[in-house]
């Protein structure tokens, strides 16, 4: 639970950041500014990495199968 409390506290803190208005988001609207512009390719990459390394998570991805690929 303490991680949830930390997240909520963080949410409260970042809510105090300067608000960027919708009409000021031209640069942010560029598809290159998206974190996972192509989730399909991201999923493929995560799949082969997860079965070759001992770590997982922290990036919102999910997968299944034996992970042989």
């Amino acid at each position: 639970m303490r991680y949830i409390y930390i997240l909520i506290l963080f949410l409260v803190l970042v809510s105090g950041c300067a608000v960027v208005q919708p009409w000021e988001r031209e640069r942010l609207a560029d598809p290159n500014m998206m974190f996972d512009e192509n989730p399909i390719q991201k999923g493929i990459k995560e799949h082969y990495i997860n079965i070759r390394e001992g770590s997982e998570g922290g990036n919102g991805s999910q997968g299944g199968g034996c992970g042989c690929g």
Binding site: L11, C17, E24, R27, L28, F35, G57, G58
Partner: peptide, 21 residues
């Protein structure tokens, strides 16, 4: 999974992720 995406300025956006498995 818990995630938080935050616009920090007109040119910077940040994302925080926590996973419990």
């Amino acid at each position: 999974n818990l995630g938080l995406t935050q616009i920090l300025s007109k040119k910077i956006v940040a994302q925080f992720d926590f996973s419990f498995i």
